[in-house]
Design a protein around this nucleic acid. Structure first.
Length: 669
DNA sequence: AGCACGCCGACT
DNA sequence: GTCGGCGTGCTC
């Protein structure tokens, strides 16, 4: 018997011989196989009586055979994953905790697998806060087959409570489950109630766990001690033998998209894993993605709601959204509108909390009053941001800083003024106008780190980028890599008011998903503000369509409008995209040469069903690379798109010295 | 991922 | 003349 073995390498599966006494059920087993003079652990993805390909050398024999870690459906999912994301199976395997799993299995080969599932769950009675959705979940789960549902919740609390209520109802009848949340910091909210319900059955899995914690979690899953896995996107690769329930919380979140390595979307592949496992898949969000709403529309998902229809829901009590028209005249310098200031002042006097959101860090841009010149970064070609505290001009991408100028680099003029308002300047303004201290919160570098503030009580006035949203909560235990799983339920103290100071920054960039993002961003903040509070939107475009939908909390109106727009401009979800990026360093040989070769690769496209955009040369913001060449394929036909992409990729890999990044269903283009 | 093969610059 | 740089290619 021969076996085809996938290794966690950039390599297609290789054929080996299995010795006479080998067990018959080799598929899904981990094996030790000779490769390049060493022994490497791999996964048997298929078996055959005769080798499927002719090889010059003689076929070598498997050295060791260990236990199976993948069911047939898990292997099918893995192969689909590799196929869909245009990558060798080995790369897909490497994204699936394979090396850790293989090492656990090989080392623990002599040990008996644990009986598993003995921890008696502690059942906590659930408050009867449920609705038709809970019933729908329970009924459908018992049907045992693949189905995907989309649920729009009123609040993130509501989203969690649907999940917890449904699982409480199911109690002992719940099979294996995977529950995904976008950020590590979101996990603690779910883990704690789930542990109350299911005890030992619950385990946490995400990529920031220490080696040991990850190994522990994986071991618990493999041995059957834990069969309810809660985690971030990578947890969808949990080595469960079977899955009957998958939940994706905040399914609209962009954090589900991997931005390095295999660029998968955790939400999309959760649905596909659910399909292969014949599982029940629940996607939920307070503002579902346009993609998912579209999938409901075309019958791929079922809408879960009181009447299966969003529009029939009772209007919830929500904070008022107030559009504040700012003077449109060029050069107007108002940062905080009087209305907004008045309300913030009133709330501050009542010791209530107010959140000021700006989309930029730092103080402002510096602009020559004479000629309007704004200095840009030499490598990244973006405007440099003035940081008043450090008195430097800084690039937001490469971080390079230089002393702030005294005169204009273009005309020599000495009148240089602040232009726009970043968080640093907003803080200055707020403190000056409200005569109170404000807390500045900016996004840290590592996702999942929770801000902890020194003051015993939370600051009343908070200024920040959208990252400051995390401060809607009071005490939060830092989610360290080690301590994940030890959850502390946060005590909430919502903001009584919030303001987007430059809403227009959310509405003016050239990206077809911009309106969707603005909608989600504002709804997310509104959801955190007290129901009797106010959310202010400062804008120079008070009549903008999206702002009107947001003001009225008109979800149906928004999705309808947005889908029309996407259709009219041939954008996703009506078309599908695959993006090739070839990044290069500044010093590298003429990009013109690479561009010409990329052109040739793109020229080989012969499918009329696929549009080719580019290749074009663009700035690329990363530490190592500064510019890139991008090639975008666009089609209504997924099969034609993938076939074309495969042939284009064949051409691109021939380009010497070029690194190629393939992004199927890119979010940023 | 490793490891070998292979074609251009500074040395015992 | 050789030693060695790492760019490119192969691994059953």
């Amino acid at each position: 018997m021969y076996v085809n073995v996938a290794f966690p390498l950039k390599l297609h599966p290789l054929t080996y011989k299995a010795h006479g006494g080998a067990p018959a059920d080799l598929r899904g087993r981990i094996v030790l196989a000779p490769l390049m003079g060493r022994n490497i652990r791999g996964l048997v993805i298929s078996t055959c009586e005769k080798p499927e390909i002719l090889i010059k050398k003689d076929i070598r024999e498997i050295r060791e055979i260990y236990q199976s870690v993948m069911s047939t459906s898990a292997i099918a999912f893995l192969q689909w994953l590799a196929d869909y994301y245009l990558t060798p199976v080995g790369i897909a395997l490497r994204s699936s905790f394979f090396e850790q799993i293989a090492s656990i299995v090989a080392k623990g080969a002599e040990e008996q697998p644990g009986a598993g599932g003995q921890g008696r769950p502690v059942i906590i009675p659930c408050e009867a806060a449920n609705n038709a959705a809970v019933t729908a979940i329970c009924t459908n789960l018992s049907l045992q087959g693949y189905r995907s549902f989309l649920y729009r919740a009123e609040s993130s609390g509501g989203e969690r409570s649907l999940l917890i209520s449904a699982l409480t109802h199911l109690k002992d009848s719940l099979g294996n489950a995977v529950i995904l949340a976008p950020e590590i910091a979101d996990l603690e909210h779910i883990v704690s109630p789930l542990e109350d319900l299911f005890g030992e059955r619950v385990c946490v899995l995400h990529s920031k766990l220490s080696k040991k914690s990850a190994a522990d979690a994986l071991k618990r899953i493999i041995t059957g001690v834990s069969d309810i896995v809660v985690g971030t996107r990578s947890a969808i690769f949990a080595p469960l033998r079977k899955i009957s329930f998958i939940a994706v919380l905040a399914e609209h979140s962009r954090s589900y998209k991997a931005e390095e390595g295999l660029r998968y979307n955790g939400r999309d592949i959760a649905v596909m894993r659910g399909f292969h496992e014949k599982a029940f898949v629940l996607l939920s969000s307070i503002c579902p993605s346009v993609e998912s709403v579209y999938n409901v529309k075309v019958g791929k998902y079922v809408m879960l709601g009181p009447d299966g229809d969003l529009s029939k829901e009772k209007p919830a009590e929500r904070p008022k959204i107030k559009i504040v028209a700012m003077p449109g005249t060029a050069g107007h310098r108002m940062i905080l509108a009087p209305d907004l200031l008045k309300e913030a002042k009133r709330l501050a006097s009542l010791k209530e909390r107010f959140l000021f959101l700006s989309s930029r860090k730092g103080y402002s841009l510096l602009r020559c009053e004479e000629c309007g010149f704004v200095e840009r970064c030499r490598t990244c070609d973006v405007p440099l941001v003035f940081h008043k505290g450090d008195d430097v001009l800084k690039c937001q991408y490469c971080g390079s800083a230089e002393k702030s100028p005294v005169s204009c680099k273009q005309c020599g003029g000495t009148a240089i003024g602040a232009y726009g308002a970043g968080t640093e300047r907003v803080k200055e303004q707020v403190e000056m106008l409200l005569k109170a201290e404000a807390l500045l919160v900016e996004k840290g570098r590592s996702a999942g780190r929770v801000i902890t503030e020194n003051s015993p009580d939370l600051a009343a006035l908070v200024v920040g980028t959208s990252y400051a949203k995390g401060l809607a909560y009071k005490k939060s235990a830092a989610v360290s890599a080690e301590g994940a799983g030890v959850a502390v339920v946060k005590e909430e103290r919502p903001f009584a008011g919030a303001a987007f100071l430059n809403t227009d920054a959310l509405l003016l960039q050239p990206d077809f998903r911009l309106y969707e993002r603005a909608f989600q961003e504002i709804i997310t903040v509104a959801q955190m503000v007290r129901k009797d509070g106010t959310v202010f939107l400062q804008t120079k475009m008070p009549r903008n369509n999206v702002l009107r939908f947001i003001k009225a909390y008109d979800f149906d109106g928004f999705y309808h409008y947005e889908l029309e727009q996407r259709k009219a401009f041939n954008n996703p979800p009506y078309t599908k995209l695959i993006l090739f990026t070839l990044p290069f360093q500044n010093g590298q040989k003429e990009p013109g040469l690479i561009l010409a070769e990329a052109q040739r690769a793109a020229g080989a496209v012969n499918s009329g069903a696929v549009d080719v955009l580019g290749p074009v040369e663009l700035p690329y913001h990363s530490k190592k690379y500064h510019r890139c060449i991008q090639l975008l394929l666009k089609s209504k036909d997924r099969n034609a798109l993938h076939d074309t992409a495969r042939s284009v990729l064949k051409g691109l890999v021939k380009i010497k010295g070029a690194k190629i990044v393939v992004d199927v269903d890119p979010l940023k283009i």
